[in-house]
Design a protein around this nucleic acid. Sequence first.
DNA 1: TTTATATATAAGAATATTCTAATATGTTAT
DNA 2: ATAACATATTAGAATATTCTTATATATAAA
Lengths: 104, 104
Amino acid sequence: MRELYKIHAEMCKVFSNSTRLEILNLLRNKELSVTELIGKTKLSQVNISQHLSIMKSKNIVTSDRKGKNVYYKLTTPKIIKAFDIIREVLAERLRNNGKTIEEL
Amino acid sequence: MRELYKIHAEMCKVFSNSTRLEILNLLRNKELSVTELIGKTKLSQVNISQHLSIMKSKNIVTSDRKGKNVYYKLTTPKIIKAFDIIREVLAERLRNNGKTIEEL
DNA sequence: TTTATATATAAGAATATTCTAATATGTTAT
DNA sequence: ATAACATATTAGAATATTCTTATATATAAA
């Protein structure tokens, strides 16, 4: 049973990096190619590929090559459900401090 | 706006350790003292205090001293909502592999 | 005020994560 | 076949995390 906490923690490690969260948020509605992700984030190609590789190895995203491009998408919308709950908590806290998400 | 992803990631770091997840799961319904947590987990006092300290610094739990004991509880039930969504994803995956959570 | 019980903090070795730079591989067009 | 474009992998320095050991602090009981 303690093994389950380890697997759970391994999965949450994916969410513990801001670059990966940014990528996941971009993938919330539609699949995107690496090139598109580069364009939207201004991050380096290498870095994005590395993070996508990490997320793929944890089964958070899947990839699909279409010609020269490789498209990535979420394996389940529940990932974004969890993402959004944490955002709600953060938004509440900011609000309590007189700030809004938009200000950041 | 990229700042928000960093705060979000900081919060998720709390969930990226199996011991902390175990503690959070024990705190899901009721507040517990450090001694009670030691009894339920068989982890060392120092280790539990350290993890509680980390979670307190990230505002995931709050503490309340009552006599000799210090009781900890979750700051918001949304923490457990997010926890449970990830568990659902893991349970689905195990099921697809012909296993159940109970087996672990 | 000393003792016992409960909890917290500090220091440091072992381990893990992240980014950058260099390079490799895969696909299409010429 | 080779050039151009898209993506993946490797290696390593810098940094962060985790656990253990030792010790400190806080409260209550004797």
